[in-house]
Structures are given as structure tokens and as C-alpha cells.
Design a protein around this nucleic acid. Structure first.
Lengths: 196, 196
DNA sequence: CCCGGAATGTAGTCACTGCCTACAATGCTG
DNA sequence: CAGCATTGTAGGCAGTGACTACATTCCGGG
């Protein structure tokens, strides 16, 4: 019996996990299918059984990223207790934390060049961001926020957070300032929409 | 006398121009030094005289992008006439237009993995965004906006615009909606800061 | 004017990559 | 247990970035 069986068993998961690590440590550009296979200990052609090409792997990585981001956001809101302001602030800081800790992965998620697997990615993204709409809607119903379509506010908020994270990742915004800028930005966006 | 002289004359400019076109049409990933050289009609090693490696070319492309963006923003403010609101709205729509028309280039500009050439890129970025600080400061001195440090407002505004553009480029925000969302977002950010 | 070094472009090589195909080992289901 | 779909292997191909040695051209000081 060989040290490693002919069939890996869960190559797909192993590929995704190792790929995520490589992307985080050395960037998307540095991800090579052959090197990946080598590290895991399979032949250079094996990944092809699970991902038709490199882009398919990247798409899967992006989708998985949205799933994990969604879980993190859900958890943050759950732990934040009641109240629209603390919930949205928790959402904001959780998003930015994820974005800065998984900079390359996030770039991958937003890279508009997914292919036929794109629907999966978009669906995962929508699912991840659903919680922000929920929080805003509930705040409107409870009278904390003025009524209106929650979609634009959610979009603008997420865009702001994404932009701030992108600037921090690009080195154009100091990492220490980020926390306070995020708090202030959310406050700016909410200040005009509170019911008083 | 050969059709093409031994020395190209301005290979560096030609490389940058052609590279910018390729990046715009087929994405950063598709940019190949050898193909570039082939298209311009020089040997595959010639680009190395002007860019030590692929990343150096990409950095130069990013820097040039910031220069052009800066010019566009300056021009937009100049053409917008007096008044803080129209100037900032013009700034906003110009930025988003650039970001969506040069999506791949913008990704390059914000990609945080520039190297020793990074100072050039950062300097170009700062120069490009300087006009937004100017507009805000002048509005504060003329009494249109409440006084305070203009930096955070400028940062948050640009982050919001960048985020909205990223979402549009990623297909998560309809291109038609973009215009009105941008206008609304700027209005949200300014609404709390006007002196009345 | 010319001559020698600096700048620029050429040609060849190397290790590597992604993608493809033919084939082998294995797992699973009737 | 037979046969088939799944999964992994092995080899090949064209293309790439980086490196080197070498050729051509440009330019400034004698």
C-alpha cells in the first residue's frame, strides 16, 4: 500500500484551502496550478478534474470568500445586540477587517472577470450582503431610521467601506487611521437619516 | 536603409501606449511583454531596456493613469463653475466615469503591490486627488461648508466613489443606476456639512 | 573629425506555466 | 463481480518572463 493512495479523497477542498493560503501570502498572481499540485502531492494535471482552468479555481475562491464574509457579517450583527447604530457599526468594522485581512482574496471577489460561474459568485455576494438590508429595514420599521428604499443606503455604505478598505490596502490610508475613519464615515452616512 | 531603423526612437512611450490599450481591451492578466514587443515590432528582449520586469511596466502604467485621472479631475472642477456642490458633483461623476471607462487600469492603480517605484505612484495619486482637498477647503473658507479638517471628508468621498465604481465594474451595480446613485451618495455626504 | 564608451536593440537559452490528450488506477452500481 | 464513470498520471506543446552574450547606433570629448 503506497504512502499516498491513488485517490486523494478530497482534492477539491485541499486545492481551495492551499490556494487561499497562497493567494493570501503571495498574491493572486503567484498562484500556479502546477505548484499547487506539487505542494499537495498530486500530479500537475490532477487539478483539472476539479477546475477546468485557472480562472475556475479563482472563481471558486471568490465564491467561498463571499460565503465566509457573509458568515462573519451575520455573526457581527448577531453579537452587536439591539439598535441600528451599533449593528451597522459592527457590520462596518467587520467588513473592513475582513477586507484588510484578506486583501488579495477581496480583490478576487470584486474582479469583474468571472465567467459562466459568475452567477454562483453573484448569488454568494448578494447573500453575504443581505444582512445589511435586513438591519436597515428593521431600523426603519422600528422608527430608528426614516422610511425609504433601504437599497441605496446599503449600496452606498458598502461602497464606502469597500473604498476605504481598498485605499488602506493600497497604502493610501494609514492602517491606524482606518478604524476611526470607518466609524466617522458611517456616522456621516447615518446622520441625515435618523428619525429624531 | 531598413524599413524600421535599429533604434525605435521612443520605445518606452510606444510600449506604454500599446500596453494601456491591451490592458483596457483584454485585462491586465492578458498583458504579455513578448506579445507587446511583437506588436510594436521589436525583439522580445527590447522592453527590458525600459522596464526591468513586467511589474515595472505595470507600475509605470499605474502612475500614468493617476496623472491622466488628475488632469481629468482638474478639468472637471475648472469647467464646473463656482460653488462647492456643483464642483464636487462634477468631481464625483468624472472620477466614476474614469473608473468605469478604465476599469482594469484603475485596478492596477490601486493594487497595493507596487515596489520601489511605489513612491512615484503614491506621489502621482496624491497629486491627482489634491484638487478635491482644494475644493473643500475653499468651500469652508467661503462659508459654504462648516469648518474642520478637509482630509476625512475627501477620503470618505473618494472611497465612496471608488467603491461604487468597483461595484459597477464588478457587475454588482447596474451601469444605468450608477449615475443617480453617485449623485445621491454625494448629496448624503454633504447634507450634514453645509452651513445654513 | 573620429573614436570610444554608453545606450539601445537582437538572438538565444532556461525554467516554468497553462492547457491538452492518452492512459492507468480506483470507486461505485447494477 | 463486471463494467463504467470518476479521479489521478504522464507526456507534450506553445507560450512566457527573466537572463545572458552580442550587435548596432548614438553622442560627447580629444
Amino acid at each position: 500500500m503506497p504512502a499516498r493512495p491513488y485517490h486523494h479523497g478530497n482534492l477539491r477542498s485541499a486545492l481551495l484551502a492551499r490556494a487561499e493560503q497562497t493567494v493570501r501570502e503571495r498574491g493572486t498572481q503567484a498562484l500556479s496550478l502546477r505548484e499547487l499540485a506539487r505542494e499537495i502531492g498530486v500530479s500537475h494535471g490532477a487539478p483539472r478534474r476539479h477546475f477546468n482552468d485557472r480562472q475556475a479555481l479563482l472563481d471558486a475562491l471568490a465564491e467561498d470568500g463571499f460565503v465566509r464574509l457573509g458568515r462573519a457579517l451575520d455573526e457581527a450583527v448577531r453579537d452587536a445586540g439591539p439598535g441600528c447604530t451599533p449593528q451597522l457599526q459592527a457590520l462596518a468594522h467587520t467588513y473592513v477587517a475582513f477586507a484588510t485581512q484578506h486583501a488579495a482574496l477581496l480583490e478576487l471577489m470584486y474582479a469583474g472577470k468571472h465567467r459562466e460561474g459568475a452567477e454562483h459568485v453573484y448569488a454568494a455576494a448578494e447573500q453575504a450582503f443581505a444582512v445589511s438590508l435586513t438591519v436597515i429595514s428593521e431600523a426603519q420599521q422600528s422608527g430608528e431610521l426614516v422610511p425609504g428604499d433601504p437599497e441605496p443606503l446599503a449600496q452606498v455604505s458598502l461602497a464606502t467601506l469597500h473604498g476605504l478598505a481598498a485605499m488602506a490596502n493600497g497604502g493610501m490610508l494609514d492602517g491606524e487611521d482606518l478604524q476611526v475613519v470607518v466609524t466617522d464615515a458611517m456616522e456621516m452616512l447615518l446622520s441625515g437619516l435618523r428619525r429624531r
